[in-house]
Amino acid sequence: MGVTQIRMKVNGVTESLDVEPWASLLDTLRERLGLTGTKKGCDQGACGACTVLADGVRINACLALAVQYDGSEITTVEGVDHPLQQAFVRHDGFQCGYCTPGQICSAIGMLAEHAAGMPSAVGASGLTEDEIRERMSGNLCRCGAYNGILDAIKEVL
């Protein structure tokens, strides 16, 4: 039960890593690559704080084994340069900031999903406020900054 070598492009940089197969993508990013912007809130897919983009698709890094993402392109908040970030600041889309990287990565993934025609349970045409709320419901914010996050996302539509 040794280590497996994987290669991932993380925020544009190719990383070659020996990982134990049971290491999550989240722990690999945080503990091995020092990319602590991606947060651990529950480690069980119940809060969304660990959301990253894998080949442009938002996923929960806590339930992803790093070995399964061999050959993938991972984008974490450290690799994000998006108008959403300033919009979050303007609309106070956070308080403590711990869920924020996940919210931002999730919102970027959400906008891409919507552009690609992905439906949601709301079933409205266009990104209405209810659509955004439903599509962002995989990211908990215990400080309750939901209004600000909504406004930040609306600003960049």
């Binding site: 897919g45 969304g48 959301t51 698709v57 938002r58 996923i59 929960n60 339930l63 992803a64 999730s106 993934g109 959400m110 999903e113 439906p119 949601s120 349970a121 599509r135 419901s137 995989g138 990211n139």
Partner: peptide, 16 residues
Amino acid sequence: VSQALLAGASPQLRNM
């Protein structure tokens, strides 16, 4: 089927 899937979990989990 589509509605059942979209009612489940979160978008991130549905992507996985």
